[in-house]
Amino acid sequence: MLIINGNNCDAIGMTISEYLTKENYDEKRVAVERNGEIIPKPQYSAVILNDGDTVEVISFVGGG
């Protein structure tokens, strides 16, 4: 099971980049946490989402 933003997700085996593209996230606006760690941006295209991972994609919105 792969949990992303609280939901069971059918994205096992995808890289973070592939997942973000598939879900129409703007990579410039996100931070990605996996199993308690923030994944550095340069690793998005190398890190593969695995069975058992818990992921949170924080997609920032403007205003402050």
Partner: peptide
């Protein structure tokens, strides 16, 4: 992080965490 622009927010959080 107290910026107003979404990209700047993400940039700071990612750089700082790294």
């Amino acid at each position: 992080e107290a910026f107003d622009d979404a990209q700047s927010k993400a940039m700071l959080v990612n750089y700082a965490a790294e």
